[in-house]
Amino acid sequence: MIKIENLSYSYKKKNVFDGLSINFEPGNIYGLLGKNGTGKSTLFRNICGLLKPKKGNITTYGYPSVSRNPSMLSKLFLLPEEFFVPSVYVKDFVGTLAPFYPRFSQEEFKKHISDFDVPYDNKLDQMSLGQKKKTLIAFSLATNTELLLMDEPTNGLDIVSKTQFKNVMSGSINENKCIIISTHQVKDIENLIGRISVIDNGSILFNESISSIGKKISFIHSSTVSNSPKTIYAEQTISGFSEVLINDSGLESKVDLEMLYKAVMLKPEEINKLFNA
């Protein structure tokens, strides 16, 4: 679906990617994680063809991304972190933009809008930031595009809306669809994503499915630190200690995304050794 081979990209003075390679397959919700400025948004823009790689290739549905081909663009929807909404009523927005997406469903849009409690008769630019975002999330899901790129989708949403977001998203994935969510709010996408990819220093540091992670790593929270040789990473929290350990029980554990991310960033050798063994 999306094939990124040896991608190199740099802004004027800053090198962002250096030989990054990754494939994104349908049927998955990917969580794209990384420090600030590691290039998560830049990767999205490269996938959409909004930026041109200095080296390497990106193909989306077989089209080179840089072509910004209408067939390709009608199969993907990007919800950027800083988004734009025109000064139109929701029904006009949908009425004039939806025809570009052949599989757009009005019913689904109305359902999502209703789930999000967004008023349908309002003007987009007169809504609150959260309402605008929820309208765009509802629109993006109703387009039924095969690829959905969401950059920090929960920024600006209140606590209830974040729960609504999780509920709406969990019902939207199917075997033909690929959703990539880039976020710092890992708690917001917990139990939602099926695969996690971490970018660091211009390349993919970690790329595994949640089930594979659960089988190889376990996460514990206790009042004392275990000091076990299986411990990969541990940190003190308000209520005690959180640890990331090698899971040799054979049982799949529940993945703590925040701890996993810290372990990947701070103990990359141990993590890579474990997963590449």
């Binding site: 081909n69 950027p80 570009f100």
Partner: peptide
């Protein structure tokens, strides 16, 4: 850039 992304991502040539 937000407006530009919205514009360039519209599925038209």
């Amino acid at each position: 850039s937000a407006e530009a992304i919205f514009y360039l991502n519209k599925p038209a040539s």
